[in-house]
């Protein structure tokens, strides 16, 4: 075993451990913010495993889309509605928990047997890291053309919808304006207009407060 293989084995172990730990954390932690951040950790560990499999495009796309977009959006949503509230302990919560555990274990065993039973058609050749984009592109435009085009049309629709939503000028309804607020006024002392001729010297100096600074 040379250096590169050793490094690969160690990093595979580390990444798997990180991924499983983070995934368990997502499910088991009660603090939803921690769960969201740990979800990002899971995605990044998955990207690392992709890298070890020489699938560097998939790895970068994983980081870009799942960590950079999906996870950020999840955290964003959590932060916008953040309300720290302790869970009230439910009576007989153990029934639910054990039921969940049974379902999860069942799913896990089902998937494991599926993985073990299926005769995988593994090719022995090592995927070349440098040309993975080329290979992916070729597959997209030959045998995976229909799903690729469908996905792109879906994304285009989402894009157009987003642009239309963003470009729509929001006009507040007229009726909202029509509700007249009562005009609030301060009680004002009535102006004394009596007796003073406009030119009289003793009154002009400070007759109006706004004139004082002139």
């Amino acid at each position: 075993m040379n250096l590169a293989e050793g490094v690969q084995l160690v990093s595979l172990g580390l990444l798997s451990f990180m991924m499983l730990g983070a995934a368990l954390g997502v499910v088991l932690l009660t603090n939803v913010v921690y769960s969201a951040f740990l979800l990002g950790g899971t995605f990044i560990s998955a990207a690392g495993i992709y890298l070890l499999l020489n699938a560097d495009f998939v790895a970068t796309a994983q980081v870009l889309i799942y960590v950079g977009a999906v996870n950020v959006l999840i955290i964003f949503a959590i932060m916008l509605v953040n309300k720290r509230q302790d869970f009230a302990p439910l009576p007989k919560a153990w029934i639910r928990k054990s039921a969940t555990a049974v379902v999860c274990l069942g799913l896990f065993s089902l998937l494991t047997t599926m993985v073990l039973v299926t005769p995988w058609n593994l090719s022995a050749e090592v995927a070349s890291a440098d040309s993975s984009i080329i290979e992916i592109g070729k597959h997209f435009f030959t045998d995976f053309l229909l799903p690729f085009e469908l996905a792109s049309v879906l994304l285009l629709m989402a894009l157009v919808g987003a642009i239309i939503l963003a470009r729509r000028e929001f006009l507040p309804e007229e009726s909202a304006v029509a509700v007249q607020q009562p005009i609030l006024t301060l009680p004002e002392r009535p102006r004394e207009l009596a007796g003073v001729t406009p030119g009289s010297p003793d009154r002009t100096i400070a007759s109006k407060p706004s004139d004082r600074n002139k």
Binding site: V63, V67, I75
Partner: peptide, 15 residues
Amino acid sequence: LLWISLSSVVPIGLL
């Protein structure tokens, strides 16, 4: 692409 995907991790730290 690596740079773009790496820089998309930064907002998580900011949040």
